[in-house]
Simulated scan of single mutants.
Amino acid sequence: MATISFARGAPSLDIVDVEGLKEASKLAFENDPAGTTAYGTSVGYVPLREWIADQHGVAVEQVLVTNGSMQADAFLFELLVQPGDAVIVENPTYDRTLLNLRERGADVRFVDLEDDGISIDALKTVLAEAVHPKLAHIIPNFQNPAGYTLSAEKRTALLELAVEHDFTIFEDDPYVSIRFEGEPIPTMLSQDDAGRVVYASSFSKTVCPGIRVGYLVGPQAVIKQIQGIATNTYISPNMVAQSIVNQFARSGRMDGAIETVKTNLKARKDAVVTALQREIPEAKFANPSGGYFMWVELPEGVDAAELEKAAAQREVQFVKGSDFGGAANTLRLAYSGVTPEQIDEGITKLADALKSLGVAAS
């Protein structure tokens, strides 16, 4: 019996444009063999850097392309966060970012997340306590792990607070393209006229996870300093991967790949909603309008760590909410790597695991 995993935020092979990537790889080596195979520069593969700058309407000097967005995070934290520095994070937030900040010795300040993004009132309370954060880490679209999206009003409020309290907003936005419904909300980067935002995104969620290409966009002076860190870290990032992404993007295959991912993930998200409502009606969740994840709150008294064990006995995996700073009765379901049929079976088994803990469906 194969394990049904709701644990990993990665698309399954059936929705990756393998043929398009093969074609882009061929074009990369045919059209620019020298640039594709050379060390290159620490700012990344120049044509891709130019394409990203054009997408965001910024000067090319404001862009740095990295080996995945986690590398971009690490560079930014190395530049801005010293031991003891206060950093605002959403509660819950992405566990790897949390780990990275804690390893740097940051004074991590959790601010509760609401259905429409970080609580501005709670943030103001923290800022009023004489806390002077260096950085606020925000995942604005289809947040990992919660799946929530930051409203336009809160984006404006955050920008105002960043200016007032002299901190940088790290707009960590790898899921921005995976919107199922509704209109895109302008990025904080696009509204920043005070040099307060550093933006990161990734091609892992749209092209494929194995491509490991991410990027930063920010004030030119900040990017220049991060370029120095990048040079000392690896001379240059992976030119082959970045050249392939460049060809993939410029050939028009990127748009089709994103549509395929969106169509399939919406069907998978809908399958989770249907199965949860049927099998675990007492579960509370917000229906995400995009992305890879859903945050589920179970009744008070349910221990997700115990449920994790019971689910594992039934060949089902998920990540408990406490790993992200959440409450003991919460969990994250990633629906990106499982088919609707697997989702239906998996949620049914999860309900059975819940009943085995003495929690019956109401």
Results as ranks from 00 to 15, higher is better:
325 G>K: 02
265 L>I: 01
135 L>N: 05
134 K>M: 07
264 N>Q: 06
241 A>S: 02
46 V>C: 10
296 V>C: 06
34 A>Y: 12
198 V>N: 07
118 I>P: 01
44 G>E: 02
249 A>R: 10
238 N>Y: 03
266 K>A: 02
118 I>M: 05
192 D>Q: 06
243 S>D: 00
59 A>C: 01
49 R>D: 04
241 A>H: 03
180 F>G: 06
285 F>K: 00
15 I>L: 07
280 I>E: 11
112 D>G: 08
163 V>S: 11
252 G>R: 07
136 A>D: 03
64 L>P: 13
49 R>G: 04
15 I>D: 06
294 M>P: 08
332 R>C: 14
122 A>V: 15
84 G>K: 08
114 E>Y: 14
105 G>E: 07
66 T>G: 01
90 E>C: 09
227 Q>G: 14
53 A>Q: 04
169 I>C: 13
210 G>Q: 08
80 L>R: 05
50 E>W: 00
138 I>R: 01
160 E>H: 12
78 E>P: 00
166 D>C: 06
155 R>D: 06
130 A>Y: 15
297 E>V: 11
102 R>P: 14
139 I>F: 09
303 D>L: 14
357 L>G: 01
39 Y>S: 15
362 S>W: 15
244 I>L: 01
255 D>N: 15
340 P>L: 00
334 A>D: 10
249 A>L: 11
279 E>H: 10
33 P>C: 01
264 N>P: 10
88 I>T: 03
244 I>E: 00
74 A>Y: 14
131 V>K: 09
61 E>G: 04
248 F>I: 05
151 S>K: 07
160 E>S: 11
72 A>E: 02
239 M>F: 02
34 A>W: 11
266 K>P: 15
221 A>K: 09
20 G>Y: 12
123 L>G: 03
347 I>P: 01
194 A>W: 13
90 E>I: 03
62 Q>S: 10
228 G>H: 12
168 T>H: 04
330 T>W: 00
220 Q>M: 06
32 D>G: 10
7 A>L: 13
135 L>D: 05
144 N>P: 15
288 P>T: 01
199 Y>K: 07
122 A>E: 11
173 D>H: 12
220 Q>D: 03
336 S>G: 06
187 T>H: 03
227 Q>M: 08
113 L>Y: 08
259 E>D: 11
260 T>V: 13
65 V>D: 00
355 K>S: 07
310 A>W: 15
2 A>D: 15
29 F>Y: 12
256 G>E: 11
163 V>F: 10
68 G>Y: 00
189 L>F: 06
259 E>I: 08
221 A>H: 06
146 A>F: 11
122 A>Q: 13
178 I>Q: 02
239 M>G: 01
332 R>A: 13
186 P>A: 02
135 L>E: 01
351 A>L: 02
361 A>H: 07
154 K>F: 12
25 S>P: 13
18 V>Y: 14
204 S>H: 15
283 A>K: 15
71 Q>N: 11
232 N>E: 14
11 P>L: 03
324 F>I: 01
335 Y>L: 07
107 D>E: 09
313 Q>C: 03
141 N>D: 11
250 R>F: 01
293 F>I: 02
123 L>V: 08
27 L>Q: 10
268 R>Y: 02
198 V>Y: 07
158 L>E: 00
81 V>Q: 04
283 A>R: 14
76 L>A: 02
348 T>V: 08
262 K>T: 09
58 V>K: 14
259 E>V: 12
196 R>D: 06
256 G>K: 14
192 D>R: 00
267 A>V: 04
73 D>T: 05
111 V>R: 03
263 T>Y: 15
